[in-house]
């Protein structure tokens, strides 16, 4: 009997301790409590859990996150759980979820160690910061900001992300399984890149340290070089 009773007594004690700290209805009535359905995969603060392939969402621009929620809902991106969770909510509520995760300021992981040769890294640096005018590939920084930490409200940063994540996303744009609002500039860019360019630019991005100020730029320094449907009209030039 004794060994059986012990856990029950312990549990009883636990529940007492817990009920003392039981949150009130007002304490529960928060957006953080509402998005707990997201935490098994994206982590409590959107940092992403270590298991599997769950992207970080913390600190990405709110407009970007919102666009992704809508993309899952409308079938431009595919992950059944994401569609299931976003499908029957008001746009206002999706926006509120997006703003919540956008406001999380969490440390980024240290940069990856280079695992490719210097020539490839250099090719990556050129693509990311200068582009390749001959092949009409604009520099990533032209849209993702000179610090590559993104631009408000809807262009995400490219630093602090693992290279396999970057490659996977660009790859799904090439194959059409990830789409953004039309005109889908990222799909166009991903298709203009050779496979090796992709590996190069992802490798270079992944070994860059994240700057001290991790927030996205508040606005574009120059007009983006292409039209992107996910960037609001008033922040870019007419087609």
């Amino acid at each position: 009997m004794k060994p059986l009773l012990l856990p029950i007594v312990l549990l009883g004690g636990l529940s007492l301790a817990a009920s003392a700290a039981e949150p009130s209805a007002t304490e529960l009535d928060t957006i953080a409590q509402r998005v707990r359905a997201c935490t098994p995969c994206h982590g409590a603060e959107g940092r992403a859990t270590s298991e599997g392939y769950y992207p970080r969402i913390a600190g990405k621009p709110a407009g970007y996150l919102y666009n992704q929620l809508v993309n899952f809902r409308d079938g431009r991106r595919h992950f059944p759980m994401m569609t299931y969770l976003t499908e029957r909510q008001t746009e206002q509520f999706l926006l509120e979820m997006a703003a919540h995760f956008a406001a999380q300021e969490l440390p980024y992981p240290p940069p990856q160690r280079p695992n490719v040769d210097a020539a490839l890294l250099e090719r990556g640096r050129v693509l990311a910061t200068e582009g390749d005018a001959q092949r009409e590939i604009p520099a990533c920084s032209a849209c993702h900001g000179s610090r590559l930490m993104g631009v408000e409200p809807s262009v995400p940063g490219l630093l602090g992300l693992p290279d396999d994540y970057l490659i996977a996303q660009m790859g799904s744009w090439r194959s059409g399984s990830r789409r953004a609002h039309e005109p889908d500039c990222m799909a166009e860019i991903a298709r203009r890149l050779e496979r090796e360019d992709l590996a190069a630019v992802a490798a270079w991005l992944a070994v860059q340290p994240v700057p001290e100020n991790t927030r996205p730029d508040p606005a574009f320094e120059q007009e983006p070089p292409m039209r992107c449907g996910s960037i609001p009209e008033n922040t870019q030039a007419a087609p």
Binding site: I31, Q33, R34, V35, R36, A37, C38, T39, P40, C41, M81, L85, R88, Q89, T90, Q92, F93, E96
Partner: peptide, 14 residues
Amino acid sequence: PGTEGSPRPFGMPP
């Protein structure tokens, strides 16, 4: 569902 009468529902984690 997120409805006019319950626009910000709470979610159950998978």
